[in-house]
Simulated assay, not measured.
Amino acid sequence: MAKRDYYDILGVQKGASKDDIKKAYRKLAIQYHPDKNPGNKEAEEKFKEATEAYEILGDDQKRQAYDQFGFAGVEGMGGGPQDFSQTFRGFEDIFGDMGSFGGIFESLFGGGGPGGAGARRGGGPRQGANLRYDIEIPFKDAVFGTKVEIQYTRNDSCSVCKGSGAANGAGRKVCPTCQGSGQVRRSSGFFSVAQPCPSCGGEGYIIEKPCTECGGSGTQKKRQKIMVTIPSGVENGKRVAIPRQGDAGPAGGPPGDLYVFIRVKAHEYFERQDEDLYCAVPISITQAALGAEIQVATLEGKTIKVKVPPGIQNGKLLRIRDEGVPIQGRRGNLYIKLMVQIPVKLSKRGRELMEELAKAEGENSTPKPISLSELSEQ
Score class of each variant (00 low, 15 high):
Arg349Phe: 11
Leu277Phe: 11
Gly111Cys: 06
Phe47Asn: 07
Arg4Thr: 08
Gly253Pro: 01
Asp276Pro: 12
Glu323Asp: 09
Ala241His: 05
Arg120Ser: 15
Ala2Arg: 07
Ala288Met: 03
Lys222Glu: 14
Lys18Ser: 13
Thr146Gln: 06
Cys200Ser: 10
Gln378Arg: 15
Ser181Asn: 03
Gln295His: 09
Gly111Pro: 06
Tyr66Arg: 00
Asp59Phe: 03
Ala292Gly: 12
Val234Leu: 14
Ala29Gly: 06
Gln13Ile: 00
Gly96Leu: 13
Gly112Asp: 04
Val12Glu: 08
Thr177Phe: 05
Ser181Ile: 04
Thr366Lys: 14
Asp83His: 05
Gly115Lys: 04
Pro367Phe: 04
Leu277Thr: 08
Asp8Val: 02
Gln64Asn: 13
Tyr25Lys: 06
Gln151Pro: 00
Gly350Met: 02
Asn236Ile: 01
Gly163Tyr: 11
Gly165Asp: 04
Asp134Phe: 09
Arg319Met: 14
Tyr205Asn: 13
Asp19Gln: 13
Val325Leu: 09
Lys14Gly: 00
Leu372Asn: 09
Ile150Leu: 06
Gln179Gly: 01
Ala2Glu: 15
Tyr25His: 13
Met98Trp: 06
Gly311Trp: 04
Arg331Cys: 07
Glu136Ser: 12
Gln82Asn: 08
Ala50Tyr: 03
Leu318Cys: 02
Glu208Cys: 00
Cys161Ala: 07
Gln61Cys: 04
Thr87Trp: 01
Val308Ser: 04
Phe71Leu: 05
Ala129Ile: 02
Val344Thr: 14
Ala142Trp: 03
Cys214Ala: 07
Asp156Ile: 03
Met1Val: 09
Glu203Gly: 01
Lys36Met: 13
Thr366Ile: 12
Arg331Asp: 06
Gly113Ala: 12
Val148Asn: 09
Glu106Val: 01
Arg351Val: 01
Gln68Lys: 15
Gly204Pro: 01
Pro343Ile: 01
Thr87Ser: 12
Phe109Pro: 00
Met339Tyr: 00
